[in-house]
Write a protein that binds this DNA or RNA. Structure first.
Lengths: 237, 237
DNA sequence: ACGGGCCGTTGATCTGAATCAATCAAGCCG
DNA sequence: CGGCTTGATTGATTCAGATCAACGGCCCGT
């Protein structure tokens, strides 16, 4: 996908804006404000109404929920190119999850009013928004399946494999271990053990925040669903 | 929400169609075909391209995924009023989950072409589609939080409480126990123990497929997140 | 350079839920 | 009406992963 150079001089990629017409895109980018946030900074409070649409250019943003009891969960980790919170901005509803920077981030912020006006005028943008929500839904479906049918080691292996585009190579993990563990539904201790177990099996090598994966296919081979999981659907009810 | 009487004589409710203009709605309902399917019947195969949009009028439909290994997961259980697969129909993409009747169902099927044409012409329908995808996304967010932060008993209690509209009353559970257990991420044995544990605690009474709940609030009180769950987000990284 | 706090790792123990196995209730068909 | 298949329940056992606790390294600021 070709990058689009905004008036701010930053390259903008991501499926949402590329689906808009050039005129719409120029309009939106003209209203955009670039910002940088340090690791750990809150970007969006839980249940807040979104007055801006954020485009993640660099870094990593975690979507987490905290219940009154104090327990928090990392629901999703967003990578560069993603926009959020799409539906909260377009539908004028509160966003049920908080967004926090898990690594130093560069973001583009577009006023919600502009985005809504553009979506009204440009059907392609609305279509792309539906595509993005569908994509987010599918990612959560995958996560639910993972949580229900795979053990901790398999979930960790899949997480790394998904970050690796090529068949072999290195993955950068800029997020703190605790955030990854929360995203994967386990404790930091369990994540550490899973990762070191995979290293002991020769499937990867840990170098601080870099992980070398000699063979992505081998990593995924570990992830076959457990023969008898907590998962049986009624066959032929 | 007022019911809309279709040419087929069935009452149609649900947020998707009520958002369309009367003309669009009449057009879609004119093309609709009513059908009834028995418990256990497949409605939509996994990864299939959807040629029809289904509206669930009565019964219960399960969305499940099966991986080659044979393990299956119940991702979501749909109630009357829901439409599926919205995004697969509108975006012409394959639906990643299979749909199966968990109870005898009455459905309305609308050809995909009609729905796409209507969405093109009627902006309200597209908007409603985005709303519905957002709703589905939020339901999955809730499910992920449940799986990560609540134990089996709490998940079972929340499932029942969510089916109960009033503060007290009876819930009908037409679905087989195995399907519910799969939706909740546990085995049928664990679900049985959780349910009977709640009954022993006086929070509900089991009568076959009917469950009496004397106090919904008490049921939900059980569900406070575990003080220290597998859930800590990085605080002030 | 030095202290201190935080993050990640490692070890020991405990527990919730899966698994294995058997029983029981209930449709359903012949 | 009785046998048979299927689903729900109960019990015994096992195990993955949470919890509790301690340690080491790294980065921070002074």
């Amino acid at each position: 996908m070709p990058g689009i150079r905004s008036p701010l001089g930053v390259k903008v990629t991501g499926p949402l804006l590329t689906a808009a017409s050039p005129a719409t895109r120029a309009q939106l980018l003209g209203a955009a404000v670039a910002l940088a946030v340090p690791r750990g900074a809150p970007i969006l409070a839980q249940e807040a109404e979104a007055d801006r649409l954020f485009l993640l250019l660099q870094g990593s943003v975690g979507l987490s929920t905290a219940e009154e009891g104090g327990a928090a969960t990392m629901v999703e980790i967003l990578s560069p190119g993603e926009a959020f919170p799409i539906s909260a901005v377009l539908l004028r509803t509160a966003h049920p999850v908080a967004a926090v920077a898990l690594a130093p981030c560069r973001l583009l912020a577009i006023p919600a009013e502009e985005v809504r006006a553009a979506a009204m005028a440009d059907g392609g943008l609305m279509h792309a928004a539906l595509e993005q929500m569908t994509r987010q839904w599918r990612l959560l479906v995958d996560q639910v399946v993972d949580l229900k049918t795979r053990d901790a080691t398999q979930r960790a292996a899949r997480f790394l494999a998904r970050r690796l585009s090529a068949a072999r190579g290195a993955v950068e993990i800029p997020e703190p271990r605790g955030a990854i563990a929360a995203r994967l539904g386990m404790t930091p201790e369990s994540l550490s053990r899973a990762l070191h177990g995979l290293e002991a099996a020769g499937l990867l090598r840990l170098h601080g925040r870099r992980v070398d994966v000699p063979d992505r296919a081998a990593l995924l081979r570990i992830c076959a669903p457990r023969p008898g999981g907590a998962s049986q659907a009624p066959r032929r009810v």
